[in-house]
């Protein structure tokens, strides 16, 4: 798979403190790439290196097949976590200014801005000062100025913070649309639900090192617990007594008429084996493999890494 961005063995040290040690990320073209990690793991430093705000001590960054160079900033759109706008400046003027800094001509910028302002129904804001807008409105302006110059690579650092649920959905739709239009997106967040929803690939950094990376489905597969939740009607004791011992009953909960039994199956067994074993014993209402969410995976991976470190 072609990669739009590859950062290889990035090392960055600040006086007495290692922010990144040999971190690599490979961002496939046209994907949404989740850059995850606890606070202080080094995500922002890595993002700043990609944006050429700071330079790595060692390691290489390749963009679209060539070593990252100064001109590439016009091909990247960056929405930092710490973001803002000039408060005293008018919305339209400011958007034009930021677009021109990204290399757009004044006329182009004007045209694209009009498209986005119409789309987000904010044409009336053009001559308003930024300080007159609500925080959510300001965030929309920031989003527009990030994507305006149609960059190949978009970097969103906690894009949803400060948005209400309606606007979060609006933004998610826009991000997915940008992906459809061919943009590659790096997405850094602590909101694991949105990672599950949006990301194709992730890299998890902890304490300056990569601890987990890959396609999101594969990762979840790797972390599957082989626990099946079965909804039954009947006697749980009967099951406990008669079920093949290779299946381990973890818990049984009564839930009104229905009972939920959690059963751990051996890693090499197929789902049907359990069903076949259960059918003679009980009525099956539901059958569900418990796949760990990204939230669990995140916590588990970070905890494991910390234990190893200690």
């Amino acid at each position: 798979m072609a990669h739009l961005l590859q950062a290889t063995d990035i090392v960055k040290e600040f006086q007495g403190h290692r922010a990144l040690s040999k971190v690599s990320i490979n961002v496939p073209k046209g994907s949404i790439f989740g850059l995850l990690g606890p606070n202080g793991a080094g995500k922002t430093t890595l993002i700043r290196i990609i944006n050429q705000i700071t330079a790595p001590d060692s390691g290489t960054v390749t963009f679209n097949g060539h070593p990252l160079k100064r001109e590439d900033v016009s091909r990247i759109g960056y929405l930092p976590e710490e973001r803002g706008l000039y408060k005293k400046m008018k919305v339209g003027e400011q958007s034009l200014y930021l677009a021109q800094l990204k290399g757009l001509s004044a006329a182009e910028a004007q045209k694209t801005l009009k498209y986005w302002f119409d789309k987000f129904e904010m044409s009336g804001w053009w001559n308003k000062k930024v300080e007159e807008l609500s925080k959510g409105m300001q965030q929309k302006v920031q989003f527009i100025t990030t994507v305006l110059h149609k960059p190949d690579l978009l970097i969103f650092d906690e894009p949803f913070s400060g948005f209400d649920p309606i606007n979060v959905n609006l933004l998610k739709d826009e991000i997915l649309k940008l992906k459809e239009d061919g943009a590659t997106i790096i997405f850094s967040t602590h909101n694991m639900a949105s990672v599950e929803e949006l990301c194709d690939h992730i890299t998890l950094i902890n304490d300056s090192e990569t601890i987990l990376e890959g396609e999101i489905g594969e990762i979840r597969n790797k972390y599957r617990s082989n626990i099946i939740s079965v909804g039954i009607e009947g006697d749980t004791d009967k099951i406990a007594k008669n079920l093949d011992k290779k299946f381990e009953i973890l818990s049984a909960n009564e839930n009104g008429m229905e009972k939920e039994v959690r059963i751990k199956i051996p890693a090499d067994s197929l789902p049907n084996e359990l069903i076949q074993a259960l059918v003679p014993l009980t009525e099956i209402h539901s059958y569900n493999e418990l796949i760990p969410g990204m939230n669990d995976i995140f916590i588990q991976a970070v905890n494991n890494a910390s234990k190893k470190g200690n």
């Binding site: 900033v73 930092p80 973001r83 000039y86």
Partner: peptide, 16 residues
């Protein structure tokens, strides 16, 4: 200071 406090500075230095 204004650029720092309004947090626009990082947006700008990703361009210049």
């Amino acid at each position: 200071l204004e650029e720092k406090n309004s947090r626009i500075v990082e947006v700008i230095i990703s361009s210049v």
